[in-house]
Structures are given as C-alpha cells and as structure tokens.
Design a binder for these strands. Sequence first.
DNA 1: ATAATAGAAGATAAATTTGTCTTTAATTAT
DNA 2: ATAATTAAAGACAAATTTATCTTCTATTAT
Lengths: 143, 143
Amino acid sequence: MFSKATEYALRATIYIAQKSSEEKKLSIEEIALAIDSPKSFTAKILQVLTKDNKIVSSVRGPNGGFYLTEKAKKMPARLILQAMGEDEVLEKCVLGLKQCSELQPCPMHAQYKAIKQQLIKLFVTKSIKQLATEIKDGVVFIK
Amino acid sequence: MFSKATEYALRATIYIAQKSSEEKKLSIEEIALAIDSPKSFTAKILQVLTKDNKIVSSVRGPNGGFYLTEKAKKMPARLILQAMGEDEVLEKCVLGLKQCSELQPCPMHAQYKAIKQQLIKLFVTKSIKQLATEIKDGVVFIK
DNA sequence: ATAATAGAAGATAAATTTGTCTTTAATTAT
DNA sequence: ATAATTAAAGACAAATTTATCTTCTATTAT
C-alpha cells in the first residue's frame, strides 16, 4: 500500500509520540531499533518529517534527539502521509486511471469508493497520539 | 496501492475480457492504446499473464493476438494479482509489520482489518467478466 | 576554549521498477 | 515454400526507491 519510507515514517512517528516529550528525546539508534528499520534510512526520513518542525522536532548534540510536541501528537496520521508525499495513495484510483471519477468511473470505482472513504477516515480521525497510546501496555506493537 | 505493472495487468485483462473471444483476438497495439499504457511494457506483462495460459490466452502470427476463454472470464480479479505476485498487498499490514496479527496487532490493525476484508472481498467476488461488462455501454471506463 | 555527542546534509551505491528495442519463433495467407 | 504478421524472449536502459557512509554543524559538558 505505502512505500517502505512511508511505513517507516508512520512507525517512527508513532514510536516517538509514545516515548518522547520535550524533556525526553530519543536517539535515531533507539528509534530504528524499536521499529526495526535501517538506521541511516530512517534518519533521512526523520529529516523530512522534521523539516520546519512540521511533525517531528529535533535537537542536535548531547542529550539531543527526536521528540514530538503535544501539539504534534494531536495531529492526524494523514499529515505524515502528506509530509512523505504519499497522501495521494488514499485518493487514487485502484486501477491507476488518471480520469477516474463519479462521472467517469473505472470498473471498480463503485465498490472501491467505500473502501477509500474508510481508509481516509482512518488516517484523518486517528491522531498520532491515539495510535501511540496502547503500545506501552503491550496491547499493540510497533515492531 | 498496486504497482504500475499490476495496474496495467488489471486494466489489460479487463479490456481483453470485454473485447475478445476465441474468434476475435486483440493485438498488443490495440490493448495498449485502449488502456493507455506503454506498449512494450504491457507486452511483457501479458507474457506473465499468458504463462501456462493461466489467465490470458494468446496465439502468434496473422490474425493472432490475445484473448480470454469463457472459463478465464469467470475467474476472480484476485487471480490477476496472484499472477503478478502482488496478492500479498491485500493481506499486508498497513504499517508494514512482519508480525502483525490479532495476537500482536499494530496500532492500526483493528480499524484496518475491516478495510482489508472489504478489499479482499472486492477482488474475490468480482469476476473479470463482471468488471468488463459495463465498459461497452460507456457506464464505466478503462482509460 | 575543547572535546564529545548527536542530528543535518550530501554523496554514493545497490536494488527494484518501469520502460524500450532487437531478435527469435510460431502461424497464416499467398 | 515464401513472405508477412504477431507474440515470445532476451538484452538493455532509464528512473525510482531503498540504503549506506562520510562530512558538517549545532549543542552540551568539562
């Protein structure tokens, strides 16, 4: 469904949301280990999410690392897709038609429409924080 | 969601199903034009679907081309995904976790589960023929 | 100030996907 | 038989994705 990069982005952000605060930052080592992703590649991805502190925040140097502000934790998961430039996946035609729409539907449009709506709803209504909260109780896993 | 190759595979197969029979075969030129796909790349993809005549049938030489048998037209769309080696997409975890399951769910598992089931249902219950039938009436488009 | 730490930035490389082109093989019509 | 047609097969190339490594910069502790 999504690229590896976006999968790592989602997992990393959810993990950081669960473990970090402005006081407690996480190193790239810890994050990559926790979500089972290649370290350097994950660093690159976090650079994207950190750009303009849009989603993830970071500071360099000793005691530095990555964290999410309370404001960021309230953001919908869809913002991560947007930051990764993969938001379109949610809206795209299953058959890859450029012109697929209500007026000019592909053969799967009618049925896929409902699925698409639920997908979008999932990423819009679930905040990063909501996705993160159950991890520490072992209800849910990120690795 | 799917690779370009699989998108072309679905579109091409649906188009062939709608236009062809054992008596009337379609050239790769016609198919690629009809579904707006690169000709040579589409030829490669049809080679895969034609392998062992599993889904698409073909004959070489004058008046040759691609077609679908009545039996093939009755097959579920999911077989195309399988032939393309992309069937796993339907079952895969949204976050890309290898171990995501009921017992060890990812943070999106509970919500995504229902979506996944509908996706699978769509590809299992819809036959290639069913997807193809509305094209000629202009109810539905493939380009 | 200096050294140590940790992310940012950039270069590079490996792997995969997407796409093209040429040659070969099968089939048909003449 | 021969020529024409059309898909099959294979080599190759371009683009994108995934991944690594090195150097630079900011920050902190001493």
